[in-house]
Design a protein around this nucleic acid. Structure first.
Ligand code: ZN
Ligand code: ZN
Ligand code: ZN
Ligand code: ZN
Lengths: 158, 158
DNA sequence: GAGCTAATTGACAATAAGTTTCATTTACTA
DNA sequence: TAGTAAATGAAACTTATTGTCAATTAGCTC
């Protein structure tokens, strides 16, 4: 998604196009990694020092309401966000570097039917996250364990 | 799981068996609903007023480390917990009343192989949550929308 | 292009979940 | 029935996120 399209999406939904907002959005949508509000703030600060952290939170809420990012739950105490397609999709998440691959054909129809029959639930949605190592990290056999080690590894990875 | 087995599990893992701990554990393991630390605290307080909220947090951490509960991520800002089997399982969650059904045969082998081939990921785990209405709530066609309405509905439901 | 207006911004304060600290109590062991 | 390490509750603390508000600004109207 380019500058033009994003601007159009924002205006269509009653949001103004501000430089702070665009800086944050370009950073988030241009990344394939899991991002936290504070990591987004740090990234954006490098090129646009005038952007406040609160604006990051506010912009993430807009992106979420437009279905352009989704929240991924990790073991961390903060929310993580990832750029994603607006249609139904699920995730493959690299537990080493935080890379996320969105995939769109989960084919859970058979399972869903079975569970409906067994449980009586009227199912209308699901969330499926796979965890593992991306190709790059799997080759490296990274041994990072502590948060600090993981941070260093991620920086060396991207 | 009864009192005896729980006590044995605790001692086996180096934890003491205290009345506060047992009160909390019986409440959590005896429920099929999603519970938050604070809802557990409220429930336990009725029968055992001497139990502190911090002990609820500490006990939940123990139960999690023993694989007897798992964390379910909801839209709420607090963690929710549900009693669960120690082997691999996934969840069916009722978005009306918070009831959770654990199921143990997800059969994601084929999908996992396909994704491994397509993405190069070395997958080692996953999390699958289905959302919908349980049989009871589906019949009731509950219209609760606000947090307060949902709370009232849940109380009437159990 | 100038002016209008409501949305947006950043600084700061406020909130709330969860954790840490610590003096006191208690469960297990021998 | 000691002895000892673990557990407890109260209170202080930390940290992510939200609310408030005066100043600024985007986008519309002329
Ligand atoms: Zn990776
Ligand atoms: Zn899916
Ligand atoms: Zn229900
Ligand atoms: Zn599964």
């Amino acid at each position: 998604m380019n500058f033009q399209e994003i601007s159009r999406q924002l205006r269509k939904n009653g949001h103004k196009v501000t430089p702070q907002r665009m800086a944050i959005i370009q950073t988030v949508l241009g990344s394939t990694e899991l991002l936290t509000p504070s990591s987004i703030f740090e990234k954006v600060k490098k090129t646009d020092p005038g952007v406040g952290e609160v604006t990051v939170y506010r912009t993430l809420n807009i992106l979420e309401s437009l279905g352009m990012v989704c929240v991924v739950h990790t073991d961390e105490k903060t929310h993580s966000y990832i750029s994603c397609p607006t249609e139904h999709h699920d995730h493959l998440i690299c537990s080493d570097c935080g890379k996320v691959v969105n995939f769109t054909h989960c084919d859970l129809g058979t399972l869903e039917k079975r569970l409906t029959a067994e449980s009586g639930f009227n199912i209308n949605d699901h969330r499926l996250d796979f965890y593992g190592r991306c190709e790059k990290c799997d080759r490296k056999q990274c041994k990072a364990k502590t948060p600090a080690e993981i941070r260093t590894h991620r920086e060396s990875c991207h």
